[in-house]
Design a protein around this nucleic acid. Structure first.
Length: 473
RNA sequence: GGCGCCAUCGUCUAACGGUUAGGACAGAGCCCUCUCAAGGCUUAAAUAGGGGUUCGAUUCCCCUUGGCGCUACCA
């Protein structure tokens, strides 16, 4: 039985890289009929915020991603302590009374990396016990095997066999001097306790995994399978960060930009993963069916954005594809929300609403286009675009519009066919190309120079409104 | 500095060691057309460099370069 988890630390809003990690876990769980677990890794009390927890919920919620079990590490400190001391009891950890290392920021170590404090590691049991009993603070460190040639290895489902000399691994901390578990310990203890079968996470943890393997072994628990995901980076190659790259890294940005949740999920899936058959637009079911770790790429994926164009054009394209092809009914709710947010009244005639969405959606790329470019369908106060004015100002266009309005008013029938007949007849009588009036009336009715076929537009706008708009052209 | 990972068009990516290195987005152009979009067609655009192995390397190995990650009680 597959059990996977997404374990964010709530120290900021939901990052798109985190969202993608959730998605890949989720796809694997759904594909295998396994269990998806959300676990808040909130052991860093100083940096955790409720706002961040909320943003994680909001983001996942918006994306339509759900989970089956939920935990917070802060509720499980007991387990972490027990696990750490169990490792200590097995002689695989030791107390280190050395004060916390200060003045870091110098990453360069002349003669190789720091591995451990020799005195602490060699300290006698008696002295260690005595100083602990005296209340002296200490960190509990893992005693990494130092016998020459000892190798730590694991098989990654994406990166293949990984191997590292134990001598290159420092004696990392298990418990901080305040008694709180470190990320490494808490994460492994929880993964073991929750019987996680597959750990799917960002590649930034690939080298940490050697430590985790050591912890799992020390705990005597079954080793989960690991699958690391390539990172999402900015066009300059740097890891995405709010400070450097701003709102492009936050999931809510795409929600606010008028994305359909699923199309954004679809986009994220294509970053670092491929179904290998050239498919790009895929439904959720198709993604679940196609997902595999073999399809995951190993190199970092660049999110393509710039100051001028803060949203990846491919994401926009995918959104327009989904917008134009999904069942119209699925659009009713999001479009309604977009209209409301823009202060427009929500249409009461559901059939008309759906038909209108269906008519205009093919030309739109985000939900924002409905209240913006599509304003004239839902409101009577709308602006003319400069391009629309050009069409209206074509020779005779306004006059023809007014005349057409008058003629339509005199007719009882109002269908695409009847409107077209009247319009063409009028143009023929005046010896004008039909295109002039077709384009002119599109402008008069919708304020836009571009849009759906004009005769569909007449029907969508409706007889009364169409006549008023034509006559006031 | 040490260790680890990675390297195909601008971007996302495909290619059992044998292909004119394919697709998509973005760009340019044409067609279609009541406009725009869609659609169709065309065009430009890549295997980081150097050595091997092989009859044959995008593909396997090594080196270089570059990028990213981790690196003493952040996750």
């Amino acid at each position: 039985m597959v059990r996977v988890r997404f374990a964010p630390s709530p120290t900021g809003y939901l990052h798109i890289g985190s969202a993608r990690t959730f998605i890949f876990n989720w796809l694997y769980a759904r594909k295998t009929g396994g269990t998806m677990i959300l676990r808040l890794d909130d052991t860093d009390v100083e940096r955790n915020t409720d706002a961040s927890v909320q943003s994680i919920y909001d983001g996942l919620n918006w994306l339509g991603l759900n989970w089956d079990e939920f935990y917070r590490q802060s509720d499980r400190l007991d387990l972490h302590q027990k696990s750490a001391w169990a490792i200590y009891e097995k002689g695989m950890a030791y107390r280190d009374f050395t004060p916390a290392h200060q003045g870091d920021e110098e990453r360069g170590h002349e003669g190789g990396p720091w591995l451990f404090n020799a005195d602490a590691r060699a300290m006698s049991q008696e002295e260690s016990d005595r100083r602990a009993a005296a209340g002296e603070p200490f960190v509990l460190r893992f005693k990494v095997p130092r016998n020459a040639g000892h190798k730590v290895k694991f098989a990654d489902q994406v990166y293949g066999l990984q191997e590292k000399e134990a001598d290159d691994i420092e004696d990392f901390a298990l418990l901080r001097s305040n008694g709180m578990p470190t990320y490494h310990l808490a994460s492994c203890a929880d993964d073991a306790d929750l019987r996680i079968t597959n750990i799917v996470r960002g590649q930034d943890h690939l080298s940490n995994t050697f430590k985790h393997v050591l912890i799992f072994e020390a705990l005597g628990d079954a080793m989960p399978q690991f699958a690391h995901l390539p990172l999402l980076v900015a066009p300059d190659g740097a890891k995405l960060s709010k400070r450097k790259h701003g709102p492009v890294v936050s999931v809510t940005t795409y929600r606010d930009a008028g994305f359909l949740p699923h199309s954004y999920v679809n986009f994220l899936c294509l970053l670092g993963w491929s179904p290998k058959d050239n498919r790009e637009q895929m439904s959720r079911e198709e993604l679940v069916a196609a997902f595999s770790f073999e399809g995951v790429n190993r190199s970092n994926a660049t999110v393509n954005f710039s100051d001028a164009d803060p949203i990846d054009p491919k994401a926009l394209w995918l959104n327009s594809q989904h917008l134009r092809t999904c069942p119209v009914a699925e659009l009713a709710e999001p479009v309604r929300a977009a209209l409301t947010a823009a202060g427009l009244g929500v249409p009461y005639d559901e059939a008309w609403f759906l038909a209108t969405i269906d008519l205009i959606r093919a030309r739109y790329t985000t939900l924002h286009d409905f209240p913006a470019k599509g304003r004239a369908y839902f409101a009577d106060d709308f602006e003319m675009t400069p391009e629309a004015l050009v069409k209206l100002d074509a020779p005779q266009a306004r006059e023809l519009c007014r005349e057409l309005g008058a003629r339509l008013e005199a007719e009882t029938e109002f269908t695409e066919a009847s409107v077209e007949a009247s319009l063409r007849k009028l143009c023929e009588e005046r010896g004008v190309k039909a295109g002039v009036l077709i384009n002119g009336s599109r402008a008069a009715l919708s304020g836009q120079a571009v849009g759906p076929s004009a005769f569909h537009l007449f029907v969508a706008v409706g007889r009364e409104r169409a006549i008023v708009r034509l006559k006031s052209a």
